[in-house]
Amino acid sequence: MEVQGYIFAFLIGGAICVVGQLLMDLTPLTPAHILVLFVVGGAILSGLGLYQPLVNIAGAGATIPLPGFGHSLVTGTIEDINKMGFVGIFSGALRATASGVMAAVVFGFLAAVIFNPKG
């Protein structure tokens, strides 16, 4: 069961990255556009209820790529709406993704303080 989980994480995670690669190679989109597109895409799929099934199969293969970030934003929002009503629209997204964003900012700051770019 455990090995199977890793295989699905590898296959689905890899496949999501291939979609990004094809977009980069075949369209004029830059990496910044790809990141935005994938987060928004993940959020929309999640809103339509299509992303959770992928997470159920692939685990980290679906949550580690950026569409998973969009998925967390939306699931968090919906959870908070269910709990608190309208005000949940403003609290759920960041609550659900707080760890990732916080870590990126703090480690980003620390890395910038400690290291210098090598060029």
Binding site: C17, L23, L35, F38, I64, P65, F69
Partner: peptide, 12 residues
């Protein structure tokens, strides 16, 4: 390429 851009590590 996208293999290291699309995962959350690329966001970081």
């Amino acid at each position: 390429g996208a293999g290291s851009i699309v995962p959350i590590t690329g966001f970081a």
